[in-house]
């Protein structure tokens, strides 16, 4: 278990180093996540060396957001005046993002798989 903590926190530390050194506009955690995927893919890290910790973290992902959510307490004044606008815009935009992302994916996927089929047909002729 200690090794698992060491690996995950170590990757995060490398992420911090990269972000600071290159002054990237991306958070260190995203870099760490990409590093973890790459290390697993290239066999530098084995799945069983991290999986106990990562499955615990992923199972409780939402919990780690709670303190940030409680931070709402500092914006209650702004909220009171513009609650309707904030909720309306967030809810509306969330629905739009879900629909647009899903539709575009399905459309492009359909288009590309059809083209691939055509390619195969052409080569057979």
């Amino acid at each position: 278990m200690i090794l698992q903590f060491g690996i995950i926190l170590g990757l995060l530390a490398i992420g911090e180093l990269i972000v600071n050194a290159l002054s990237l506009p991306v958070p260190s955690s995203i870099i760490g996540m990409i590093l973890l995927t790459a290390s697993l893919q290239f066999g530098i890290i084995k799945l069983h060396q991290v999986e106990r910790l990562t499955s615990f973290l992923l199972k409780n992902l939402g919990f780690f957001f709670v303190p940030a959510g409680i931070g709402l307490i500092n914006s209650l004044d702004v909220l009171k005046g513009e609650l309707g606008a904030i909720v309306g815009a967030s809810v509306g935009s969330t629905i739009i993002i879900i629909a647009v992302t899903g539709w575009v994916y399905q459309l492009v996927r359909k288009a590309t798989s059809r083209r691939n089929k055509n390619d195969i047909n052409l080569s057979q002729e």
Binding site: S28, M33, L58
Partner: peptide, 11 residues
């Protein structure tokens, strides 16, 4: 633990 949890999404 928020940041380590996001790293874990790599799995």
């Amino acid at each position: 633990w928020l940041k380590p949890a996001i790293v874990a999404l790599g799995v």
